[in-house]
Simulated scan of single mutants.
Amino acid sequence: MEPRHPRAKAAGKRQRLTAATARVLHEQGVERTTIADIARAADVPAGNVYYYFKTKDELVQAALAEHAGHLGELTALLDRLPDPRERLKALIGAWVGRRETAARYGCPMGTLAVELDKRAEGGLDLEAGRVIRLLLDWVEQQYRELGAADPEGLALALVGAYQGMSLLSSALRDPEIMTREGARLVRELDSLA
């Protein structure tokens, strides 16, 4: 077996750091997370983190990009379904499928956006909003394809319901809130003319 190219090795390490950052920030929050926490989660020496990311804010930016990437992958997968109603149902199914994580930590983007909004500097709150906007736009497009009246309002209601059920599930440490509310959202979709 030949050794990996140094650039490929560096890209792999950077990706591990990015994924670890997204996970650790979700579990611990921005303020409680240290560079050492991220390095440990990525299995990288703490000093190496600074080779890839100069500041904690750069790590947060990388985590936001990671979340946007995951959202892009999910919506691309859902876009393979022929019917927009089925796409929305599958989205809800994906949310409900992460109910244990939501019950423990909340929504990864929602909790990060709220935390970043409380910081006085950086503008990362606006970047978090852009990631959430990607989801809203995709959901709105599904409602448009369904021919629904007020697709923008319906998108806000659906994504807002997800944020609410994630928050309540986390606050009450009850993953079944996600299950019950997910089923209610699916029923609403089925009743949509």
Score class of each variant (00 low, 15 high):
A63V: 06
L192W: 10
Q61K: 10
T75M: 09
G147C: 04
D174W: 03
G72F: 00
L81W: 04
W95F: 15
L77Y: 11
P45Q: 08
L112H: 03
R98G: 07
M165F: 12
S169H: 11
C107I: 08
L64C: 06
A63F: 01
P82V: 04
G147Q: 02
L112I: 10
R32Y: 08
V24E: 03
L88I: 10
L126D: 10
R80C: 13
V44G: 09
K54W: 11
H70Y: 12
V186K: 14
P108D: 11
G164D: 01
L77P: 00
A63W: 02
E100I: 05
M178T: 06
R144Y: 01
R99G: 08
N48F: 13
I35Y: 00
A20Q: 06
M165T: 01
T21L: 06
L154S: 06
V49R: 09
G129E: 07
G29K: 01
S170D: 09
T111I: 02
P151I: 05
G182C: 11
A128E: 01
V159A: 09
R130C: 07
Y51N: 13
N48T: 15
R104I: 04
R104C: 07
A161W: 00
F53Y: 15
A8N: 09
L91R: 03
L88F: 02
L146G: 01
G97M: 13
V159G: 00
A76I: 04
A155W: 02
M1I: 06
L126T: 11
E145M: 06
R80F: 03
S166L: 09
A155M: 02
R104K: 13
E140S: 01
E31L: 14
A76K: 08
V159L: 04
V131I: 14
G29D: 04
D137H: 11
T21G: 11
L185R: 04
Q15W: 04
N48R: 14
R14W: 06
G47E: 07
E188L: 13
Q163K: 01
D174K: 10
P45A: 10
E145N: 01
P151S: 03
P3A: 11
R187H: 08
M178Q: 12
G93T: 04
K9A: 11
R119Y: 13
R87W: 08
A90P: 07
R98L: 12
E176D: 15
E127Q: 14
A22P: 07
Q163R: 07
D83G: 08
A161H: 05
V186L: 12
G122L: 09
A76V: 06
R7G: 03
R104L: 15
E145W: 02
R4M: 13
H70C: 10
D79E: 13
D57Y: 09
Y50L: 12
G129I: 03
R14K: 14
P45E: 08
A183N: 12
L134W: 02
Y52F: 15
A148E: 12
E140K: 05
T18F: 00
W138Q: 00
T18C: 08
I177N: 03
A76S: 12
E140N: 02
L74C: 03
T179G: 07
M1G: 14
P82E: 11
L74E: 08
T75A: 06
P3C: 02
L192R: 12
L135H: 05
